[in-house]
Amino acid sequence: MEFNATLIGEMISFAILIWICVQFIWPHINKAIEERQLKIAEGLNAAERAHAELKAADNKAAAEVKQARQQAAEIIDRAQQQANQILDKARADAVAEINRQKAAAQDEIASMAQRAREELRERVGALAVQGASKIVQREIDPAAHKALLDQLATEI
């Protein structure tokens, strides 16, 4: 097989064929390839974004749960404090009431004792007068000697 113009002609045609491939066939393949790349890149991006969003949502949910827990703890604390306050107040009220009643009872007791003492003094005065009248064998006018007897009664 000799090298001659036949091969040159074939090479020219081959060059045209390659040019046609480059011009009209390769762009289609290239377009398909680039579309594919773009699609994959978009898909990966979307997945990454979704992943990040999920993570953010998770974080947010966790933070909210934490906050809610904190709030609940605060509310419980406050309730306990209030309960304690109420209890303390009730206790203080009760103590005050007890003291008041105790004081009233003591007052009453004191006044009753006073009355009893006065009554006793009067009786003792009367008895003393009777005794004395019996001793002196004569009538003593209780009205005339009341001042004397009262003085005697206070001395007892």
Binding site: M1, E2, F3, T6, L7, E10, M11, F14
Partner: peptide, 12 residues
């Protein structure tokens, strides 16, 4: 698609 004479010329 290769030129029909290309490879024969080379192998010759």
């Amino acid at each position: 698609l290769l030129p029909v004479d290309l490879l024969p010329v080379i192998t010759a």
